[in-house]
Write a protein that binds this DNA or RNA. Structure first.
Lengths: 177, 177, 177, 177
DNA sequence: GATGAATGAGGCTTCATTCAT
DNA sequence: CATGAATGAAGCCTCATTCAT
């Protein structure tokens, strides 16, 4: 994970990955069919971890706005704690496999229920969020997060708690009706 | 450009680039030191083109809000017209060189004067935009644009004029005080 | 055996061989020094089986011609029943080890007494077969069998009983004086 | 060719082939898509050469028997001159690609006109050869040649002119009515 | 005696870059 | 100045064999 997060798919040779994992090159192939599978499986594991982090203490009963602010804050904090996870996911986001997954999630294919999607669908139905397609609302909410995280990681801003709060509020302004 | 936009840095062999440009492989090296340089110079050229597109008809005298809406709209339209430019820039954005450029622009290093930076600095000083670092405001404004463009290109949304308008407004909501 | 017959020496990984034999990969090495040994021992076993098939009902007392026709017929039938044995032996035939064995058999080294060799030596001595080296007679007799079996297996001819009879006769024509 | 003839497909690494050809490994791939293609193209070239050798001085107007004896003699002599060609073709014969080619040739698919096929078809129609499928006649005629060539190459017989003559005659005995 | 995870050498192929023509 | 064949390092992956359990 580290190697790929830091140097990207093409900058992380299997030999080096094996080295870092203190195994021989061939050993990897007992656990992953090939490099691509390895990458995708790391991704899936990471996604689960993030989901858990989000679910823990998720205030199901608070109003939509509060739930949204909690969620955005948690995501930012998670990635501040795990900057490599951010880099990794970012890389994966635009890979063919990442695109496929996103498309599946949006187009019906339910997968597991998804508190994020749920929150936005609720928001639209209850006329609290703007009357825009959910995909667009997702972009309005998370586009800035991604961008701001990136800048945090390369040291262009520092995200402390007050800043996180104000950014979360700004994102809310973007989607609220 | 096309090749790299479509298939990425590593998916675009020099031989094929040369082919598409109807020159021999060796010829490229008389004009660009190496692949990286080629990539960066294409980037620079593209950036200039976008700047020009933005500057044309830029309503210097309208209020900040109107200038912002114009700018965001133009950028979206530009990328809808040139989806490959979007893909190209996106790839470049996180490359070591892309990061370096962004850092230079934000940290003093004036480069050329920049109407985007100017707009945001104005916005903050005139208390019309939120009191946040310019970097953050930039993320709030353009993060969603990037995200929404991505989805447009892969066919997850369709950005028509009304949609562009409503997204621009939403971005304004995020940054306005 | 099956795996090697079907996919060749290089197409049959030890791991898969072990799998098919329902043992662990390492176990094979308690019974065979290495892959080559395994291959050769399978060969030897198979050869014995063929010899037995030939010996059963072998009409020792009939004239040479009849014995020859019986033998050729039996061999063809054996391989029709066991096409994988044919494929296996064919592969082995040109391997270094196969060549070595053939050489030993022909050059004095008696090995066990061999009814095939015996038949041909008889044939020559009794002036019933052509006055050619036994090796050559063997080629005249069995070369076509190998070739025709190959075609049968890949479906280019179908060897039914009448056809087997006529082919055997033709082989006899080739060697008889 | 030499390497593959001597050591087989799997015993001839591309690196060594390149070495022997005094080029770098990568260079091969400018001329052949991959190893398989290389093997097949060598084969095709070789086949053409053999065909030419056969066609030269081919006595079109002599009776079938004489044409057959000429042909068999020429083939044997060709392979005695080019033992590696023999080994190469033998290897190719049972490869998937070789089988495919043979099947195509026999099943209608005319390819170029083929003096061998022609000779045998003539032989059957004129009631000079046995009334057997052409594939079988081919096996009866060439099976021994292959076998005897093999033994010649590994030194089990020596094929001098008289021997060639007598073997050719024996093959004729096998197919003639 | 059996297991099967681990090993790592070795195979095929790609591709940025060079350089003789 | 352009060409494009040649280069060879480097990448991914396979698989015979070993050895701790």
């Amino acid at each position: 994970m580290e190697l790929i997060a830091e140097r990207g798919f093409h900058g992380a040779p299997m030999a080096e990955i094996a080295d870092k994992a203190s195994v021989a090159a061939g050993t990897i192939y007992r656990y992953f069919e090939n490099k691509e599978t390895l990458i995708n499986e790391i991704y899936r594991e990471m996604e689960d971890e993030i989901r858990s982090a989000l679910l823990k203490d998720y205030p199901v009963d608070l109003p939509i706005r509060e739930r949204f602010l909690f969620m955005v804050g948690e995501i930012i904090r998670y990635f501040i704690r795990n900057p490599l996870h951010f880099r990794y996911m970012e890389q994966h986001y635009n890979s063919p496999y990442g695109i496929l997954m996103r498309r599946n999630r949006l187009m019906g294919k339910p997968g597991r229920e998804d508190i994020v999607m749920e929150l936005f669908e609720d928001g639209v139905l209850s006329l609290i969020m703007k009357d825009l397609p959910v995909v667009v609302l997702l972009s309005l909410a998370f586009g800035p997060i991604i961008s701001v995280m990136r800048d945090h990681i390369i040291g262009l801003v520092t995200l402390d708690e007050p800043m996180i709060g104000r950014i979360s509020e700004a994102c809310w302004d973007a989607i609220k009706r």
